[in-house]
Write a protein that binds this DNA or RNA. Structure first.
Length: 136
DNA sequence: GCCAACGTTGGC
DNA sequence: GCCAACGTTGGC
């Protein structure tokens, strides 16, 4: 079991959109490092859902429902992938970026160290802390 | 609106 | 292969 965090601009595709759809293929990733993480995802892995830009907080918990497969939105001949994600639950208390920054236990998270990466792994301990903070 | 980070593109 | 220019992301 691995743990991940994905980012989305709420204006583009929000947690509300995601839950309304009952899940989605996580398409559109066009960064090699992020793609490599998508490829490592396994069904059942847990994924925190972060709203970037306008919201800047972790808002929900999702799960990998299907492993990496060719991204149908990518041009033919390219090798981008998408995974299927389904929602589990909204966090009772969204975890803000400010809160993350102030918690020593989260000082190494990729979200802080590599702000532009849109798909990233979380250490189990980091995932636990985020869920705990999100529980309120 | 600005700017830092950083990935990509293209000229050489 | 190097590197400057440029575009995008995302925090402030």
């Amino acid at each position: 079991m691995n743990y991940w965090l994905v980012k989305s601009e709420p204006a583009a595709y929000s947690w509300a959109d995601f839950t309304r759809d009952g899940g989605t293929d996580w398409t559109g990733v066009r960064n090699y490092q992020a793609r490599n993480f998508l490829r490592q995802m396994q069904p059942g892995d847990l994924v925190l859902y972060y709203h970037s830009v306008s919201d800047k907080q972790v808002v929900g918990l999702a799960e990998v429902a299907a492993p990496a497969a060719p991204d149908a939105t990518a041009p033919a001949g390219t090798d981008w992938v998408a995974v299927r994600l389904t929602p589990r639950e909204a966090l009772p208390t969204p975890v803000t970026l400010a809160r993350i920054k102030q918690d020593e236990r989260l000082s190494q998270v990729a979200l802080l160290r590599q702000s532009r990466l849109s798909v990233m792994p979380l250490r189990p301990a980091e995932f636990d802390v985020l869920l705990e903070l999100g529980a309120g």
